[in-house]
Computed example of a mutant assay.
Amino acid sequence: MLARPHKQLIYNGRFTSQKTTGVQRVARELIAALVQLSHDGDVTVVVPPQQGIVPVSGTKTVKMGFGKGVIWEQLVLPLFAGRCRIVNLSNSGSIFRGNQVIFMTDAAVFDTPAHFSWRFRTWYRIMFWILARTSSCVLTNSNFSRDRLAHHCGVAAARIGVVPLGADHLDPIVADTSVLQEHALLPSRFVLAVSSMNPTKNFARLVAAFRKIDDPSIDLVIVGMKNTTVFGNAHEMLEVAPNIKHVGYISDEKLKALYQHANCFLYPSLYEGFGIPPLEAMRNGCPTLVGRAAALPETCADAALYCDPESLDDIAGKLRELLNSDSLRADLIRRGHLHADKYRWATSARMLTEIITGL
């Protein structure tokens, strides 16, 4: 057990044993930014004692207790953490601990329950409801998510702090253009779509809208993996066509190359608590078309072209407009660069630090 003062912070590192997608990205980038801000250089991340841990560079990584997964997070971590304050940045935390910080990414398990397996949504609803009341600090990433979480968890919106996320994590990475050759892609001759295969990402309409363009010289490239444990056994959403290419989960180096060489980025999502991918696209010079829904107007402001995510015709029409207008693309690239530059992980980490140190 760690022998530390009452308010010594330790960071829940369960995410270090998981593949990096949206939730894990948030935790990893926030902690990496906190390392850069730390005056004493001591940011402690506690992790399960298992193989396959990918530590956050610069942190003090401590293997704690026994077991792994949910059991480790719910029972072992709070037991072995002693009097330390646990900071949970990856959307979950122990319901048996009160003296902690919880970062909830969105209220999707309440707002879009049909898009999650019943076990997952039931557990997360219970966990969020308890943590919203018992945690010493509750955080989320947008005003939209704050209001939805407050509504569903039955707490005042003022109890939930807002820390917007960053979009500069791909900056130091060297783009790997081999991904273009691997999938027979030509620069500026493909539309890019990036996210998990969550039904809220609207891939069925996305694919159908792309097919309405009916231009075999343009490819649709879909990046992301499907998680049936979380999202249930949804039917396959990707239609088979020569110019529709599902490349699965890829490295950040290859993702950056796709952003930089795509004609445009298509993200007609039905529900987002924040929306990092559109900001990633903007920061890498890719004009962006997003759905006018949930937190996306808050996150993207006037730097994106908007469509009605529930209208196949509108998605197709806006995509066609973007593909056919060099001036529109150039304007969106300019506005996207300026807008995405406001979203830096260092800024997020400073906001997080100010909130936590004020507890």
Score class of each variant (00 low, 15 high):
Cys153Gly: 02
Met237Asn: 03
Thr59Asp: 00
Ser145Val: 10
Met237Ala: 03
Ile356Leu: 05
Arg189Cys: 09
Thr61Ala: 04
Leu332Asp: 10
Gly98Gln: 03
Ile86Met: 05
Ala208His: 08
Leu149Lys: 06
Leu30Met: 12
Asn12Thr: 13
Gln181His: 12
Ala108Gly: 00
His169Asp: 11
Val290Cys: 05
Ser136Lys: 09
Phe265Gln: 11
Ile355Asp: 00
Gln260Pro: 12
Asp219Tyr: 12
His235Ile: 04
Asn91Ser: 02
Gly291Trp: 14
Val47Tyr: 11
Tyr11Trp: 15
Asp168Leu: 12
Pro5Phe: 02
Gln74Ala: 01
Trp345Ile: 14
Ala175Val: 15
Ala150His: 13
Gln260Leu: 06
Ala330Asp: 15
Asp168Val: 14
Val47Pro: 06
Ile173Ser: 01
Thr357Cys: 05
Ile102Ala: 01
Thr288Glu: 02
Arg25Ala: 07
Val207Pro: 05
Phe120Lys: 09
Glu310Ile: 12
Ala175His: 15
Val194Glu: 12
Arg320Tyr: 13
Leu296Arg: 06
Asp252Ile: 08
Ala294Ile: 14
Tyr306His: 05
Arg283Lys: 07
Ile95Leu: 09
Leu2Tyr: 10
Ile218Glu: 01
His152Trp: 14
Val35His: 03
Arg97Leu: 10
Glu239Gly: 08
Asp313Glu: 11
Phe103Arg: 05
Leu255Ala: 11
Leu323Gly: 00
Gln8Cys: 04
Trp118Lys: 02
Trp129Ile: 15
Val223His: 08
Pro242Glu: 01
Arg211Gln: 08
Phe190Glu: 09
Arg335Val: 14
Pro287Phe: 09
His261Thr: 11
Ser311Arg: 04
Gln260Gly: 02
Pro55Lys: 11
Lys256Cys: 09
Thr122Phe: 11
Gln24Phe: 05
Ile218Met: 04
Leu186Lys: 10
Ala132Asp: 04
Phe128His: 10
Ser195Tyr: 10
Trp129Lys: 12
Leu9Ala: 02
Pro199Arg: 00
Ser117His: 02
Asn284Thr: 07
Asn198Gln: 05
Arg25Cys: 08
Pro49Asn: 01
Ser92Thr: 14
Glu272Asn: 03
Ala316Pro: 04
Ser195Arg: 14
His183Phe: 15
Ile71Asp: 03
Asn243Glu: 08
Leu220Cys: 08
Asn12Ile: 14
Ile355Glu: 01
Ala3Trp: 15
Ala234Trp: 05
Leu77Trp: 11
Glu272Pro: 10
Asn202Asp: 03
Gly93Tyr: 10
Asp314Glu: 07
Leu279Arg: 07
Glu321Trp: 15
Val290Arg: 06
Ile53Ser: 00
Leu2Val: 09
Lys68Val: 07
Val290Glu: 04
Pro287Val: 06
Lys7Val: 14
Gly52Gln: 07
Ala156Ser: 15
Leu319Ile: 07
Pro78Gln: 03
Asp176Met: 14
Val45Trp: 09
Ser136Val: 13
Leu296Val: 07
Ser348Val: 12
Gly58Ile: 08
Met225Asn: 06
Leu2Asp: 02
Val163Thr: 00
Ala132Gln: 11
